[in-house]
Nucleic acid binder design. Structure first.
Lengths: 276, 276
DNA sequence: AGGGAGCTTTCATTGGTTGGAATAGTATTG
DNA sequence: CAATACTATTCCAACCAATGAAAGCTCCCT
């Protein structure tokens, strides 16, 4: 009603003020809206967060639901579907390593009864692939499918130490991530630590939040000798001394590596002298 | 050279003989090409199986790779990416139940040292969400992320018994899936079995392939009393008698249900008299 | 009953999508 | 070493699927 009578404007139907993104990207951006905190979303929430008009979102969502990437709940909200999970389970660096590592993680868990973690690197972060925790274990910072920084976690340091030289330099040049409850290492110390990790096959980090814990991590190698994952254990500070845990963690990591086709060198040091 | 000289055909550029499928569907169909046996694929393999020209496939794949749904290996092949796995880990019926159930699965596994399975129903099949197996356990038919029939597995029967009446009828009217190593039940027996499963909270199936095993499964309920998952144990035939395992399996399933907000009724029977 | 918010359908317009053809790269064969 | 076969990538003109404002719907709250 508030619309002024036609001055001379054409029907104005079908006008597309803003657009220009490939459809696939838009569909994927809908998936990207889901997060730990947002597991069930309404159409308007999805449209808002993916920054697109409701009809467009609805059309794309309809296709995603038809395929099974999303599922619709009784209350009309959408959640990530089992079909997507099914395809994702074929991810070599996701379920792939997990499948191979799980029995060894279980052994480690059973012996120690503390959190056991498995993670891979994706870009500038570690992605948690698996976590075994007792029903009554200490609080832990990260969940499976979540991301953790590289420089302030034991698992992250192992992955960083195993990354290619160029990537390491890039990361070291960046300002360090500020992680509550973890001491920030100056660049020099990080370099020394990374070198130690490569030599000993062990990284340790102490953190005070969300609870005071010590993490001990060790690298997992593939057949080519590349670090493809990291395995770690998280214990409450003051419990078993870390140096007692280290051999167990390293043994588990090596067992997984062997299963990935890695031929272990004679000594602990994989490469006696670091890169050129 | 074998091409006959221009008769009178126009440039024929941009002609599109066959098409008409939404772009999103095409992109998703590329993801669907991946399977247990096909975890790393070349461009042409993807294009062939998804039934689309190579340039089209390449363009779509490029978007999927940019987002992280796919990753490219050094040899040029594509695999499912960690980013997709990450989003999929938010699937309530995938990692969701898993996360809640895992500690109880572990308990059950530790006590029995046999395969422990967790599955949900997706349409006409069960999707395996989790499987705990010792390093040296019996051979088992299904892998995590894989699908199993409803009528010929213990886990499937539990899920079928918990489905809505209409769906059950549809499934019962279908010709039974032929599963090697499993006896085929006539329709009447299936009906009786499903009723028993609802009453006792236990389903059992014996199979002879890939090895002779007995499976014992029990339903997991959500807060609304709906069967959302099934939990089972697979033991070599002749080992622990199944009736000894049943209480342990049921207890574990109930523990998971309780964690999902299910308020257990006084007796084993959830609803004393079946639907009206 | 009225107002607001979210969901869904419609439809004229158009720009992203399309795939044959050409080119480049790679492996296999005679 | 040329010839063959296959795969990957770039190019681009034609065109159809995608687009989003508008309006109708349904529900909920007041």
């Amino acid at each position: 009603m508030a619309v002024p009578p036609d001055s001379d404007a054409p029907p104005a139907r079908g006008k597309r003020p803003k657009q220009g993104e490939p459809v696939v990207d838009r569909a994927l951006s809908l998936l990207a809206v889901f997060s730990d905190r947002r597991r069930a979303l309404t159409l308007s929430e999805l449209a808002r967060h993916a920054d697109m008009p409701a009809p467009t979102a609805l059309r794309l969502i309809a296709r995603l639901v038809a395929w099974g990437a999303l599922e619709r709940l009784d209350d009309g909200r959408y959640v990530v579907g089992v079909r997507l999970w099914e395809v994702a389970s074929l991810s070599p660096r996701g379920h792939g390593v997990r499948e191979i590592a799980l029995p060894y993680l279980e052994d480690l868990f059973e012996v120690t009864r503390h959190h056991v973690l498995l993670a891979v690197r994706d870009n500038e972060q570690a992605v948690l692939i698996e976590r075994l925790s007792g029903k009554d274990a200490t609080e832990v910072a990260y969940r499976v499918g979540g991301r953790a920084p590289l420089r302030t976690t034991a698992i992250g340091l192992v992955l960083l130490a195993g990354a290619d030289q160029q990537f390491q330099e890039t990361m070291l040049r960046k300002p360090p991530e500020l992680e509550p409850g973890v001491a920030v290492m100056p660049e020099g110390q990080v370099r020394r630590t990374l070198s130690d990790v490569r030599r000993t096959g062990i990284a340790m980090i102490r953190r005070t939040l969300p609870s005071t814990t010590v993490s001990v991590a060790s690298p997992v190698f593939d057949a080519q000798g590349t670090v493809v994952a990291a395995l770690s254990i998280v214990v409450p500070d003051g419990a078993t001394p870390p140096n007692v845990l280290a051999p167990a963690v390293r043994a588990a990591a090596r067992a997984v590596s062997r299963n990935l086709g890695y031929k272990a060198e004679a000594s602990a040091d994989v490469r006696t002298h670091s890169e050129g």
